[in-house]
Amino acid sequence: MKKIAIQLAALVFALVLGSAMLDLDPAPVDLRPAVAAHLEASGVAHPVTAVLLNYRGYDTLLEVAVLLLALFAILAVIPDSQTGRPTPAAPVLQTLARLAVPLMLVTATFLLWAGAFRPGGAFQAGSVLAAALVLLHLTGLLAGWPQPGARLRWGLAAGFLVFLAVAAALLLQGHLLQYPPAWAGLLILCIEFALTLSLGLLLAGLFLFLSRDTEGAP
């Protein structure tokens, strides 16, 4: 009896939720013409990249800060133990990984470059970079990371720091992240480049800092 009541309640809730979605009014403000009208001044030719890094640049800035904070939290709670060399995978897998990783680096670079005028951008490029690192780790070619050293720390923070530096420099001119149109393309490319590197390390870090392959280690 109780089970039937719960299922009935869930069904009614699902129906109400579905009808609410169908009832939604179209967005009261259509931003697409505004985005298209200012695309010339944004420094890039792809509207999604223009929104992410120019019109709503501070959203992306804070997003990167949140990711960095998440990694800090992980670094704060994991035990400070030595990671041994991971068990190597089968030779076929290792060879495949060795072949795939250079291609993934090329893909990441392409995605970064393509972000200016077609779907792509720093987040996608960064995650391909991270996937390459994870692949290397899973096949036993790259050991899990212990507590990060100075170089890795700078790499992790680079994207956020570059973004913050650009924002601070532009703040002196009056407005937060309001790029001068002549410089916009170059600034966005610099930020995206640093972001790709940092996001790749950050996302891979979520994996590699947590990985504890103790086989072979004391």
Partner: peptide
Amino acid sequence: DIGLAEAA
């Protein structure tokens, strides 16, 4: 764009 991010 979202598709790429979702896949990766």
